[in-house]
Design a protein around this nucleic acid. Structure first.
Lengths: 114, 114
DNA sequence: TGGCGTTACTACGCCTGATGTAGCATGTCT
DNA sequence: AGACATGCTACATCAGGCGTAGTAACGCCA
């Protein structure tokens, strides 16, 4: 199981990554995350939508309503310049953080019966 | 800068790692973390001591007072069986988490002027 | 001997992010 | 008709990390 504490701080990054190439909306993003991680991480709906709110308030994404011909109209989000810049920052931060944490991690060798 | 949100959830792991081989106490641990990470991460005192409290309550560490011949007596901590087991869990979790997050991270190539 | 720096903590409270629970509305499928 | 997928919102809780502040004992040096 993935602890929510470690994902914490990278929810936004995950979403922004998926918005880099094209706008999207909640349900689609949540499905993509599930697929991309082979269901190792499934983002909760509340987590996702509150991330949208937070990131729009921070100016990292912009919302617009889609022109659906059927069903409930969706709210789409597109990444902004600020969002892209923030995303790149987080990627750099990740490399540093990984380096730091791994100083304290012992990798198990598989020769032993776990 | 390392965001505290990503470290969150790995504070305990870092401390436990340093207790694996020998008991230690607050000040020493904080210095070791600083050295080991080349000052990339400096643990706040409050963070450290509240982690001690939490982990002792969880049974991951045990405290005992040192027999100092000078200065203020220190509180030493040693890792327990449960602590070692928890540490190993977190190491496994880390590998999984890293795998997940890295699906959403674009590594910058250094050819570009950053 | 007086002040500074280092060591070694404790207490209190805030802020943020992730999550739980709940509910609602429109579609399509059977 | 009812289930299931889609597409959300509102509200509240909880924990972890951190800011701020204060205390205390000792060594050292002028």
């Amino acid at each position: 199981m993935i602890s929510s504490d470690i994902i914490r701080g990278y929810i936004d990054t995950m979403i922004l990554y998926l918005l880099l190439n094209e706008p999207s909306y909640g349900y689609e993003i949540s499905k993509k995350i599930k697929e991309l991680t082979d269901e190792k991480y499934i983002m909760k709906e509340t987590t996702l939508y509150s991330a949208f709110k937070r990131m729009e308030a921070n100016g990292y994404i912009e919302s617009f309503s889609g022109e659906e011909t059927y069903g409930k109209p969706r709210t789409y989000y597109r990444i902004t310049e600020a969002g892209e810049s923030y995303y790149r920052e987080k990627c750099k931060e990740w490399e540093l953080t990984k380096e730091v944490i791994e100083k304290f991690i012992v990798k198990e060798n598989n020769n032993e019966y776990n």
